[in-house]
């Protein structure tokens, strides 16, 4: 589904990603862990198409498309979804109205007819229940006045509405209490299918108790320095990132 080869990215002349290689197949959950400043969020931003980053080397193939050649909206329409670490508040823009526009622009992109109002409302009802998001919140302005937990649940709600092939969760667990964490994880697990894939970016192992990854990658200093199964996360939790840092120096 996603094939990343030797990806290098700069911001303001400073190299953040220094040659990332990653293969993701449908049905898989990949966790990307790493200490602060290792390039985790940059990685997510580059995949979503944030324009401040300059790609200096490498390639990203997403379902047969050159992902780096697509603008952000077309990446989303092709089935990429980024759950933001810090979901922004957009006063005056209604959550459900903009989602309807997003769904219909995506459908138009795929030469499909617009969703009917009835189907859309049914979808909102079903998906907001999934993340226990009050339907009143769903129809308010995007994230305006939402608590931290509500913002994160709204991200998963949007993900459920858009039904992406590849979802990237950028530190979705940060700032969540245990109940919110459970709700968010439950949403992600329910949406999982053999046809889609998920990248979970996190600093802490905690989330991975709820969303069980098939692979764990450790990102350090702009590179993936270690890959393993879910047990790697536990090992990291126990030994801390210093273990990787020292090992990395030895490499």
């Amino acid at each position: 589904m996603l094939s990343i080869k030797n990806l290098h990215a700069n911001i303001e002349g400073k190299e953040i990603l220094k040659g990332i290689n990653l293969e993701i197949k449908a049905g898989e959950i990949h966790a990307i862990m790493g200490p602060n400043g290792s390039g985790k969020s940059t990685f997510a931003a580059v995949l979503a198409g944030r324009e401040e980053y300059e790609i200096t080397e490498g390639s990203v193939d997403f379902e047969g498309n050159d992902l780096l050649d697509l603008n952000p909206e077309d990446r989303a329409r092709e089935g990429l979804f980024l759950a933001f670490q810090y979901p922004i508040e957009i006063p005056g823009v209604s959550n459900v109205n903009f989602l309807k526009t997003a769904i219909n622009e995506t459908r138009a992109y795929k030469n499909k007819d617009a969703i009917t109002a009835k189907d859309f409302l049914a979808l909102v009802k079903e998906k907001s229940a999934l993340v226990e998001l009050d339907s009143k919140l769903a129809s308010r302005s995007v994230n305006e006045g939402f608590s931290g937990g509500e913002k994160k649940r709204n991200e998963i709600f949007q993900m459920a509405m858009l039904d992406p092939k590849l979802a990237i969760l950028d530190e979705t667990d940060s700032g969540l209490d245990i109940d919110a964490l459970r709700i968010v994880a439950n949403g992600v697990n329910t949406l999982k299918s053999p046809d889609n894939a998920t990248i979970v970016i996190t600093h802490y192992q905690r989330l991975l108790d709820y969303i069980i990854p098939d692979f764990v990658h450790v990102l350090y200093n702009g590179k993936i320095v270690k890959t393993g199964g879910k047990e790697l996360a536990l090992e990291l939790e126990e030994k801390g990132y210093d273990w990787i840092k020292t090992e990395n120096v030895e490499l």
């Binding site: 979503a48 198409g49 944030r50 324009e51 603008n71 952000p72 909206e73 990446r75 989303a76 329409r77 979804f81 980024l82 933001f84 979901p87 922004i88 957009i90 006063p91 005056g92 823009v93 903009f98 989602l99 526009t101 997003a102 769904i103 622009e105 995506t106 992109y109 302005s141 995007v142 949007q158 858009l162």
Partner: peptide, 20 residues
């Protein structure tokens, strides 16, 4: 960018923002 990342074109997103 947030709106674009959900599949809304830049043009529509700009419009939504001005309307808002």
């Amino acid at each position: 960018f947030y709106l674009q990342a959900r599949g809304v074109s830049k043009k529509t997103a700009t419009n939504m923002m001005i309307n808002a």
